[in-house]
Design a protein around this nucleic acid. Structure first.
Lengths: 246, 246
DNA sequence: CGCCCGCGCTGACCTGGGTCAACGCGGATC
DNA sequence: GATCCGCGTTGACCCAGGTCAGCGCGGGCG
């Protein structure tokens, strides 16, 4: 996680069958682990700060996140880091590089994480034999495209709106989808959030305190609680100080 | 094109075979128009300002642009228009909606245009029988994801950088890929460019004149000529007034 | 022909948020 | 225990670019 220290990638790999996995049959892995894909997957564990892959490395697989959390990012020629998203259990990593020989982005664990590796070879085989698998994979890619389109639009909003939308979406897709009042973990740093939303860390910090002052939010550091969902949604729509009517 | 008048969608459709098409065998259409896809395509013409499709309409096809130019955009709940990109001959329209029952964005012709329609049904059939077609389609989606990722990064740059990058990419992908000195058409309005780059129309205008003053650019209105590619690339890297070193 | 309207351009002004600096804190290391 | 270092927070300052207003021009239309 440090800006200077670059931990080498190392993963403890173990073979895997999806039968009996707690993620169930909705998981893309379970859909792969039939037919020709059977038994080709493997599972890996990563510590916080370990990279699953780095931009430029040869890409030969897709990963289903089964625990923890990841940050996906690219670094621009000038060294700036653009966070593309935070990836939670159930999500897929590497889909943006599927049709490229090298990874087009990097993925680093921001919490102790587990992934299921789906080798490209097995994916290609399965694609050839299962229309359902084709449909699910292309749906994943389509969803990613739309996520990026929405993200693009977020870039035109005020700082309050960005943070509010971020918190709402984060809350919605957290395990259990608890929008309501219970506290939730925010595994990423303020800097990460800033690099995701296109804001300076200081601005993220300021918005957090402003949201807390307004009573919409509560919590310190890595754990927050949404106190007033409606208020937050209102802010996401129009920004904090009432601005131009829609 | 007007903000108020909403022209209804109408297309003159004619059946189509790809054999003998000037786009050649690289075209996604040609790859479809074999096997089960054969003879299922059709061709349409659109006037400037006509919509190919609108967000929310049932989506049942992909389109290969074979002439003219399109603008792809979404309108946000508050009415703001976010331009997703400008689509030129050889590009594909509708790929972001392929796995959805409705179009997730709108596409409007910004110049008299021609498209080849590829029905989703034919696509699905062809996907089942051709690994090559699968590869090409998923490569298209992957490229779209990466285009959006780069666009996201553009959103963190100065106005000069955005416009410079835009002009360079526009020039690079124009028919003939002429980066060099010959003038080229810019079919989109300043407003379109602004809504694409996340800038106010006035800012786009100002940057254009600044670029012309600096000698990097020449031209009026809809036709421009890049006078100094290196300078433009330099600006794309560091911005116009020399800023923080890389 | 005159009129209108949308587009592009420019100037003046204002503000959201970037930048810089300082500080408190908690965790890791010795 | 003392030191260090990265993180989060806050304050002060400033500037890129948004906003508003005005103007010229060219194209469509009565």
């Amino acid at each position: 996680m440090s800006a200077v220290a670059i931990p080498t990638r190392r993963r403890r790999i173990e073979p895997l069958r999806c039968t009996g996995c707690e993620r169930g049959s909705d998981c893309l892995g379970a859909a792969l682990d039939e037919g020709s894909g059977a038994g080709r997957m493997s599972r890996g564990h990563l510590e916080r700060g370990e990279h699953l892959y780095r931009m430029g490395e040869p890409s030969d697989s897709l990963y289903v996140v089964s625990g923890g959390a990841f940050k996906s990012y690219v670094v621009s020629p000038d060294g700036g880091e653009q966070v593309l998203g935070f990836v939670l259990p159930g999500d897929v990593l590497g889909i943006d590089s599927l049709s490229h020989p090298q990874f087009q982005s990097s993925a680093v664990a921001i919490a102790p994480a587990r992934v299921c590796r789906m080798p490209a070879e097995a994916i290609r085989l399965r694609l050839g034999e299962s229309p359902d698998f084709r449909e699910r994979l292309s749906a994943r890619m389509g969803r990613e495209i739309q996520r990026l389109q929405r993200l693009l639009h977020l870039g035109r909003c005020t700082a309050e709106q960005r943070v509010a939308v971020f918190l709402l979406s984060q809350s919605a897709q957290s395990e259990g989808g608890s929008l309501a009042g219970r506290p939730q973990r925010l595994p990423m740093s303020r800097r990460d959030i800033g690099q995701f939303l296109g804001l300076a860390t200081e601005t993220v910090s300021r918005v957090f305190t402003r949201l807390q002052d307004s009573g919409a939010l509560r919590g310190r550091r890595t754990s927050i609680e949404i106190r007033n969902v409606e208020r937050l949604m209102e802010i996401a729509r129009v920004g904090l100080p009432l601005r131009r009517g829609s």
